[in-house]
């Protein structure tokens, strides 16, 4: 093959990979055996991690990228794509996963953030990224940074779908809302969304006692000026307004625990579903996995949902999100 004639890691290839996952279920797994269960159940991909979110919540401490040895075992065990999580902003974990042959990186709030200022500049990678979002602002920023897929953050490890529903509704309604504002208005939204990139420079100036506003020409993130970012977000928002959906695939994640939860998220407009703790924290993982796959494919057929939900055993116990303190919530990480 003449290598110079081949292009790798283009936006089309990255976003295309994410599109192939549509209508599918991506399952969290912690070892090769679980990955096999997921593949047999019809998962379109698996997410390799050290512990499922429910256990991360229980154990506490710093949650990091999984052991590459474990990830490699999972890669070798299944034929479907393998994704893995990195800490928000942890460029080196992402590079390590790319070197390992992981098919997609999840820059995830479920792990302990590594950078309080920035997310990874995802355009600099050959493999695609998925990122969580609670709002249109978070989603647009991640897409501008190069994410090929967005998922709701929800509230991982709770088995409680309420936050995923909240985030899906917020994003969808915000997209519809763009039709009601003119282009000047959308430009102002882009400027507002770009605000979170100036924190580092702002902190530096404040610490140095320099009382100067951030200007258009200030380089604020990687090689990009504030103006580059505003214009990038503006173009992204115009396209989102025109097509009335995100410009990349949008999955549901963070609290999906039952077949009905998964189907509900599809009815709300999700392109597919991530199931984290929901499968391997249930009483019967293989049956739960198959039932959730079926539910996603037949999300608009209530009689099918009723049938596959019969006697599949107990869903994970779950947590009431409203009883969690702000510190205990994972979704507030990485805006």
């Amino acid at each position: 093959m003449e290598l110079e004639k081949l292009k790798f890691g283009t936006e089309l290839i990255k976003r295309g990979f994410a599109k192939m996952q549509k209508g599918g279920v991506i399952m969290d797994v912690t070892n090769a055996e679980q990955a096999g269960v997921a593949e047999d159940a019809g998962a379109v991909a698996v997410m390799a991690l050290h512990k499922v979110p429910a256990d991360i919540r229980q154990t506490g401490g710093v949650a990091r990228m999984a052991d590459p040895k474990k990830i490699k075992e999972i890669i070798d065990a299944v034929t479907i794509p393998v994704m893995a999580k990195i800490r928000i902003g942890h460029v080196t974990e992402a590079q390590a996963l790319e070197a390992l042959g992981v098919d997609m990186v999840d820059e995830s709030e479920v792990l302990t953030p590594a950078d309080v200022f920035f997310h990874v500049d995802k355009r600099k990678f050959v493999i695609p990224f998925v990122c969580g979002a609670r709002s249109l602002g978070e989603a647009t920023r991640r897409i501008w940074e190069g994410a090929a897929m967005i998922r709701t953050k929800g509230e991982a490890g709770t088995g409680n779908v309420v936050e995923a529903v909240r985030h899906m509704r917020l994003i969808n309604r915000s997209i519809a809302n763009l039709k009601e504002i003119d282009e000047d208005g959308i430009h102002k939204v882009a400027e507002h969304y770009a605000g979170s990139y100036v924190k580092l420079l702002g902190d530096i100036r404040e610490e140095a006692g320099i009382n100067r506003e951030i200007t258009q020409k200030d380089v604020v993130f990687e090689e990009y000026t504030f103006e580059d970012i505003v214009e990038g977000l503006y173009r992204e928002l115009l396209e989102i307004r025109d097509i009335q959906r995100l410009t990349v695939v949008n999955f549901a994640a963070g609290g999906v625990a039952t077949p009905a939860d998964a189907a509900f998220m599809m009815q709300l407009g999700a392109d597919g579903v991530f199931v984290g703790s929901g499968i391997f924290k249930s009483s019967n993982p293989a049956d739960f996995a198959s039932a959730i796959v079926e539910a996603v494919h037949h999300y608009d057929e209530p009689e099918v949902i009723a049938e596959i939900s019969k006697g599949i055993g107990e869903a994970m116990k779950g947590l009431d999100v409203f009883l969690l303190s702000e510190d205990e919530k994972l979704q507030t990480r990485g805006v």
Binding site: K5, L6, K7, F8, G9, T10, L12, I13, G16, F17, M20, P81, E98, G101, D103, M104, V126, I127, P128
Partner: peptide, 25 residues
């Protein structure tokens, strides 16, 4: 190969012609 090896290339397809083809896994 895997996603890292996914590529785009120009193909000449018999009966169809030149085509910018995207190969994903």
């Amino acid at each position: 190969g895997r996603q890292r090896e996914s590529f785009q290339t120009r193909l000449n397809i018999k009966g169809i012609g030149e085509f910018d083809a995207v190969f994903i896994r």
